[in-house]
Write a protein that binds this DNA or RNA. Structure first.
Lengths: 339, 339
DNA sequence: CTGTTAGCGCGTTCAG
DNA sequence: CTGAACGCGCTAACAG
C-alpha cells in the first residue's frame, strides 16, 4: 500500500537510482529534485527503513535500555538525550528492562534485531548478558549512571563517593556525629559506591565506620524510604542526620519527617537528585544534585562518536562531579517544628 | 558479520526454505530442528528483522507514543502493557512526544518507518497529526487515557466526570460547600473532562457552578500543584476542600498542606492516582484510584485484536470506572494539626 | 516434509 | 548527471 520508488518513477519518469540519490543527498539536478519532492508529497511517500537498513546495514536509530522506566532521573536523562540524538539525525528506541537481567538481555537482542547503530544502557546490575552479542555485531554500547564490571564499554557516571562525602562533610561540619544512610542494596553500582563513600567519609570524621543496620530500605522506592526513615527514628539512639542515597528515598524520608510530631527531635536530612524538590518544599532541603543535562549530553556524545567511528578503540569513562545545593537550613527541620 | 541462513545452510546442508520454516514454526523434522538450533547457537545467529519485515510486511513490533515520559501513570501502564504484548509475541518500541504535537507526529512517522504493526498512543492534545499517515498504511491505533477528537480509533479511557463527581459527592456529604479544583488546562482531554465533572457535581450539590479562578496551576507538575494550592489558601475565602485532578497536583498540594502552620485551618484534600501515596502518608489521604492494570490490559487487548484483524471495523471506546479510596479521615488534615 | 525460485524496497556499483 | 543491473536476508509460492 505504501508508496515506493516505483511509484515516484511512474510520476516523474526518472530512474530508481536518481530517486535514491535524491533521498541520500547525492548529486541530482535541481529540476529533478523538485519533481521528486512533488511526487513524494503527493504520494505521501516515506522511505522504507527496512529496505534501506537491509541494504545499508545502518538504521540511523539508537537504542536505549532502562533498568527503571518509573524513575524521574532516568526519564529526564532520556528526554534530554533524545533531543541531542534527534539533532544528529538519529531516532531513539526506548526499551524497559524492568530491573530484570533477563528482560535486559532480551531488550538488547530486540534492539540488535532492529539493527540499531548503538545502544545506551542504564544497566540493571554489574553484569549485562547481551553485551557479547552487541560486541559481536559491532554495536557500540555506552553505560550511563552505572558502570559495568569487567566490560570494555564507555560509561558516564558521577563521582558517587565524592557526592556522598560532600554531604557527610557538611553534616559533620555542622556538628553531627550520629549519621545514617538510606541506600539500596549493594548489587546496584550507584548504591554500592555511595555506601562506600559514606562509610569512608564517616570514618574520616569520627574515626570509626558507621553501623550499617537498618539502612537498606526495601523496596527501593518512596515507600521504602518512608519505612526506612521511620525505622531509623525508632532506634534507641536515632541518628541526628540522615543522608538519602537517591530521590525516592529522599521523598519518602521527607514525607516521614513531616509526619513526626513536634515532640520528636527532627534529624537533619540531605537528599539526592531532583532539584525540583528544593523549589517546592519549605524550608528548602539540602540536596546532592546530579548534572542531569551533562550526563545526557556526554552520553549522547560518546555514543555518537562510537557510531561514527570517531572514537578511540579503548573504552572511556566520564566521571562527572555533583553539586551540593544547600537548603534554607543545614539542619533541615520539618514544618511542624517551625511553629 | 552477522550470521545468515546461508551460514546455517553451510553447516547443516539444509535448504533456506527449511531453515526459514524452522524459525517460523512450520513443519520440520525433529532431527533437522536440532541440527539448525545447534548451528544457530554456534553462529550466534539472530534473525534479521529487516529482511523478515521487508518480506513479510510485519514486524511483530508495536509502537507506544507517550505525551509524557515523566509520568508515573504513563510509565506504569506501559510497563504492564509491555508484559501482555511480550506474552503475545510482540516487541515494544517506546517513543516520547514530550508534550509536543510536532514531536508526536514525528514519532508516528518514525514508528511507521519501523513498520510497527500497531500503535498505542497517549496523545498530546485532541488532534493527532500522524493519524492519517497511520491510517493510510493500515497501521491501527489505540488511544489511551485521552480520547482523540473526530478520530475513528479505539480508545481506553476512564469515566473522568464520574470520578470527580464521586469525590465531590463525598466532600459534599461531609458538609463541605466551598470546593476548589486543581486541574490542568482544558486543552488536555482528561483535564477538561474532570473539570466538567467537577462543575456539574458542584452545581448539583450547591445549586451553582463553582468559581474557576486560580484553579489551573501552571506548570502541570508537582510545583504547579504546590503553587496552586498556596494560591487557593491565600484567597479571601479559601476553600474548605480541594480536589486535585492528577497525581502531580496531589503531591504538590499535600506538600504545601504540610507546610501550613497549625494556625491555618487545613482544607480537606481528595487526590488522584497513585495509590502508593495512601500507603506511605499518614494520615492516609483519600484518593481517586484509576484501574491502571485494567487500562493496560484492555489497551493491549484492543491493539492485539486490531493487529490480528479480529476486531470489528468500527472504533470501540472502553470506559473504565474508578474507585474512591477513602483515607483515614474524610477531612484530610496535615500532620501538624494532629499534635 | 524439503528444495527451488522469485521477489519485498532500496542502495550501490558501473556504464553511459 | 543519469540509468540498468545486482543483491542485502528473508518469506511465500510452488513443485517434488
Amino acid at each position: 500500500m505504501a508508496a515506493t520508488y516505483k511509484d515516484i518513477r511512474r510520476l516523474t519518469g526518472l530512474s530508481l537510482a536518481t530517486i535514491s540519490k535524491h533521498f541520500n543527498g547525492g548529486n541530482v539536478l535541481h529540476a529533478n529534485r523538485v519533481l521528486i519532492e512533488q511526487a513524494a508529497s503527493d504520494l505521501g511517500y516515506q522511505v522504507n527503513d527496512f529496505a534501506r537498513g537491509l541494504r545499508s546495514r545502518r538504521s540511523m536509530t539508537l537504542g536505549v535500555v532502562l533498568a527503571e522506566l518509573n524513575s524521574t532521573f532516568n526519564t529526564t536523562i532520556v528526554s534530554a538525550m533524545e533531543e541531542r540524538l534527534r539533532e544528529a539525525g538519529y531516532g531513539t528506541i526506548i526499551c524497559n528492562s524492568q530491573g530484570s537481567p533477563a528482560a535486559e538481555a532480551e531488550a538488547i537482542r530486540f534492539l540488535i534485531g532492529k539493527m540499531v547503530d548503538g545502544i545506551v544502557i542504564v544497566p540493571v546490575g554489574d553484569e549485562v548478558d547481551g553485551l557479547a552479542a552487541a560486541a559481536e555485531r559491532g554495536v557500540p554500547v555506552v553505560a550511563v549512571d552505572r558502570a559495568i564490571a569487567r566490560a570494555a564499554v564507555d560509561a558516564v557516571v558521577i563521582d558517587n563517593r565524592g557526592a556522598i562525602a560532600s554531604a557527610v562533610d557538611l553534616l559533620a561540619g555542622a556538628g553531627h556525629t550520629a549519621l545514617a544512610l538510606l541506600a539500596g542494596p549493594d548489587t546496584t553500582y550507584t548504591m554500592r559506591e555511595r555506601r562506600i563513600g559514606f562509610r569512608e567519609a564517616v570514618k574520616r570524621h569520627t574515626g570509626r565506620f558507621p553501623a550499617d543496620a537498618l539502612t537498606q530500605p526495601d523496596p527501593v522506592n518512596i515507600e521504602g524510604g518512608h519505612q526506612g526513615f521511620r525505622r531509623l527514628m525508632r532506634l534507641a539512639a536515632p541518628p541526628t542526620a540522615v543522608v538519602c542515597a537517591n530521590y525516592e528515598f529522599t521523598l519518602g524520608a521527607i514525607i516521614a519527617l513531616n509526619e513526626l510530631g513536634p515532640e520528636v527531635p527532627a534529624p537533619a536530612i540531605v537528599g539526592f537528585d531532583n532539584l525540583e524538590l528544593a523549589r517546592i518544599i519549605r524550608p528548602r532541603p539540602t540536596l546532592v544534585s546530579q548534572p542531569v543535562a551533562q550526563i545526557a549530553t556526554r552520553a549522547a556524545e560518546l555514543i555518537l562518536e562510537r557510531v561514527r567511528g570517531e572514537a578511540p578503540p579503548e573504552p572511556r569513562t566520564v566521571v562527572l562531579g555533583t553539586e551540593l545545593v544547600i537548603g534554607d537550613e543545614v539542619t533541615y527541620t520539618n514544618a511542624g517544628s517551625r511553629a
